[in-house]
Design a protein around this nucleic acid. Structure first.
Ligand SMILES: [Mn+2]
Ligand SMILES: [Mn+2]
Ligand SMILES: [Zn+2]
Ligand SMILES: [Zn+2]
Lengths: 147, 147
DNA sequence: TTCTAAATTAATAATCATTATTAATAAATA
DNA sequence: TATTTATTAATAATGATTATTAATTTAGAA
């Protein structure tokens, strides 16, 4: 069994355990999220599935992405003006975002928890989590600049 | 001269050097941003100034916040659904955000640049900057929870 | 100073991602 | 099978932000 299939199987299990019905639309959205490496927007998911589900509503995509987020299957990546992007949750990782083409690349970095300790110490907050993103030019876009 | 007045003087200088006219509206928005410790939204700025400028348009606030951002006087803090918040640029700092009341507290942390090195190394990106926020409960909200 | 061009403002319309509403449909359960 | 509940699809509403445009103000030239 492929890794993707494993992820999907576990995800469906999580839904079942949470009492969420597994509809064809939900199955397809999850499948697409897991297979996609591009952190798609709700609209991209909608468009990718419209051939298989010609009369699925875009609201259904939004609704189900929220359901997935609430049971912890999906993380929503929010930015300023543009639309949210969605990331199927596997391992903890950060993102590098290309300021030219918008590509989002995963990367892992060990031990940023000390900053939570520090922040808690200087502010008195009870810290729950943090968010970190790195911005720059992806190799392709950097290459396009010099040519 | 107070620190605030110094900031304002420098900001007006920056505007003049950039060829941006200093209108009463711009002066007031800058003044409010510098005095405010709350990282206000465009609408909060608009409402705070409406007694002094009864017929200022909210579009003027947005336009001028963009002007200030473009000349580097102001940073725009963007989150998911809610509206952008604006921070007058002084020293480099990060933010701790209360998940209950939305309060934003400044804090400084040394040496997070190594993560940019790391990200560049593993991804091949040309890194320009990063974004970090820490989330949790502010002391007041944490206190309200236990009572 | 007066004239002219450019910048800025105010008012308002438009945009667009997301959410709310609601009636129809499908699934679970008694 | 009958009834309740969840889900969907269609569509309207929301709300922050941007675009448009005419009026006003300002800066610089004559
Ligand atoms: Mn990711
Ligand atoms: Mn700040
Ligand atoms: Zn790129
Ligand atoms: Zn709080």
């Amino acid at each position: 069994m492929t890794v993707s299939a494993d992820y999907l199987k576990d995800a469906l299990e999580t839904l079942k355990d949470s009492g969420v019905r597994i509809t064809p639309q939900r199955h397809a959205i999850l499948e697409y999220l897991i297979s996609s490496m591009t952190h798609p927007t709700a609209d991209e998911i909608y468009k990718a599935l419209e051939s298989r589900f010609p009369n699925m509503s875009v609201a259904t995509v939004y609704n189900n992405l929220r359901v997935f987020r609430e049971v912890g299957l999906v993380k929503e990546l929010t930015y300023g003006d543009a639309s949210s992007r969605f990331d199927f949750v596997t391992h903890e990782h950060y993102h590098i975002i290309c300021e030219d083409c918008g590509k989002i690349t995963d990367f892992q970095y060990p031990g940023l928890d000390e900053i939570e300790q520090f922040a808690s110490h200087v502010s008195g907050y009870q810290i729950s989590h943090h968010r970190l993103e790195v911005y720059g030019l992806c190799p392709e876009c950097a290459n396009n600049k010099v040519n």
